[in-house]
């Protein structure tokens, strides 16, 4: 069975416990607002869907119904983008606690503080999260644009149908990218836990 040693980790050494990195500070500050925005998006999206169902039942203007067909996913996916952001920021918060907490424990023992350098998975997590956010938010904005254009009668039914398919594809792909980013974030947490396991033993061995 393959084994690792403490030398297999890329670290930086400081005299004092390090502070949170910028993305981790953002995680602490932003997970709550994102969570609140997500709940609002979901609530608005579901209410709009009930309104649309009522319009269909009452046989109202097909253009208005088609327009609402874009407003509903716009609101729901605003919610999904926010909830995925909240999950990502909560992961960043966990990584921040591990960085500061791990450093402070080492400092308390009077040893130099070794901290894991940002792993490649963490960098990829941030890049993919940013890409996914942009894709989903672009789809949300374009859904609203499509809804307004359809309601105004500016688009042909074929154009409207094409935009529906394109935007659905974009927001679904954005969702998949976000989930993959979250996977990488969790893999980073596992890596940090593994490093801390090694470092604690090393500090105790040197005591």
């Amino acid at each position: 069975m393959t084994t690792l040693s403490i030398n297999d980790f890329t670290t930086e050494t400081t005299a004092k416990a390090p502070d949170r990195m910028m993305p981790q500070k953002a995680g602490v500050a932003l997970w709550r607002p994102m969570f609140a925005m997500a709940l609002m998006g979901f609530a608005i999206g579901f209410i709009l869907s009930l309104v649309r169902a009522g319009m269909i039942s009452n046989g109202e203007d097909p253009l208005e119904i088609a327009a609402f067909g874009h407003y509903v996913p716009a609101a729901m996916f605003f919610g999904f983008a926010s909830v995925f952001a909240a999950i990502s920021f909560a992961i960043a918060k966990i990584l921040g606690e591990s960085r500061v907490g791990g450093g402070s424990v080492q400092e308390a023992t009077g040893t130099e503080v070794a901290t894991l350098k940002m792993p490649g998975t963490a960098k990829a997590f941030i890049v993919l999260m940013a890409m996914a956010t942009m894709i989903i938010h672009a789809a949300v904005v374009l859904h609203v644009v499509a809804g307004v254009s359809i309601a105004a009668g500016d688009w042909t039914p074929v154009q409207a149908e094409q935009w529906t398919i394109w935007l659905e594809a974009a927001r679904r792909f954005g969702t998949v990218l976000y989930l993959f980013a979250i996977t990488l974030g969790l893999v980073t947490i596992a890596k940090v836990i593994r490093f801390q396991t090694f470092r604690l033993r090393q500090v105790a061995d040197r005591a």
Partner: peptide, 11 residues
């Protein structure tokens, strides 16, 4: 969405 919201709070 509710399940994902719960996951946020768990994390």
């Amino acid at each position: 969405a509710l399940l994902l919201s719960g996951i946020v709070l768990a994390l």
